[in-house]
């Protein structure tokens, strides 16, 4: 039975995947249902292929818009993609995704983009996003990555104080957890998702204690999981029920402006 309080911030769809496969829209909805996840922030799988360059990216963003329009009750929020290797035209596509298509933000996996989070090639994209009020940048981090080290997210969050960032996969191991806590102390414009988190050593409890419940977001990483152990991790965490509600959906609704829209 879907839990109406859950808003999963981390669900990807591979729009090039065969219809009905696990990573297609239909497959993702099946997995959400199986886990009792009512609603999610949908974003294109960052590993999409780009044989046509910017046109490949635009096709992903168009598909994300169509999916959000087709299932507004399941995907109340959609994110787009943009590629730093596409230069100025990549920035134009970022702006189009956020304005013309009305997507709520962009997702970056810089290991896939091939450019560091804080590299010069990212600047035009983030500058374009900064012109759109309320845009959210979801950025994958990984403690041992060359291109998506957590500190690099801190650099761009400091450079772009008007943008809100979500560190995707922010607690993959204890080093990553420590880096996320450090980021949280220094940058108030970063939120942190629990997708792919370590499930030992009280990850949720420590995140609430060290960062605060109001910046922690539940993310499932569907379709890379069939069963969301991280949803269970939040449900059984030794934290206040109000904090649990914030993590499972309240924070995300506030971050993406859904509470304001409901009023």
């Amino acid at each position: 039975m879907p839990d109406p309080t859950v808003l999963d911030v981390h669900v990807h769809v591979a729009f090039d995947a065969p219809t009905g496969s696990a990573d297609s829209v239909e497959g993702v909805l099946r997995t959400m249902d199986a886990n009792g996840i009512d609603t999610a922030v949908l974003s294109p799988s960052p590993s999409y292929e780009t044989p046509l360059g910017v046109r490949s990216t635009a096709a992903q963003n168009d598909a994300a818009r169509r999916a959000v329009d087709a299932w507004p009750d399941r995907f109340p929020v959609g994110l787009g993609v943009a590629e730093p290797r596409h230069g100025r035209r990549g920035a134009d596509e970022a702006h189009r995704a956020l304005t013309e298509l009305g997507l709520s933000g962009l997702v970056f996996d810089n290991d896939v983009c091939g450019q560091p989070i804080d590299g010069d090639a990212m600047r035009p994209l983030l500058d374009a996003a900064a012109t759109v009020p309320g845009a959210v940048m979801a950025v994958f981090t990984m403690a041992y990555s060359v291109l998506r080290s957590p500190f690099r997210l801190g650099v761009v969050a400091r450079r772009n104080p008007s943008l809100r960032f979500v560190s995707f996969n922010a607690f993959m191991d204890i080093t990553h957890e420590a880096a996320s806590v450090d980021l949280a102390e220094r940058q108030p414009n970063i939120w942190f998702d629990l997708a792919c988190a370590k499930t030992q050593l009280s990850t949720v409890e420590r995140a609430v204690q060290q960062i605060g419940a109001d910046r922690i977001l539940f993310g499932s990483a569907i379709p890379d999981v069939a069963r969301s152990h991280h949803l269970e991790m939040v449900r059984v965490a030794d934290i206040d029920d109000d904090d649990r509600a914030l993590i499972l959906g309240g924070n995300a609704r506030r971050l993406f402006g859904l509470e304001e829209a409901a009023r």
Partner: peptide, 9 residues
């Protein structure tokens, strides 16, 4: 890491 706004082209 060169720019590739036109993909294969």
């Amino acid at each position: 890491g060169q720019e590739d706004p036109d993909g294969i082209e």
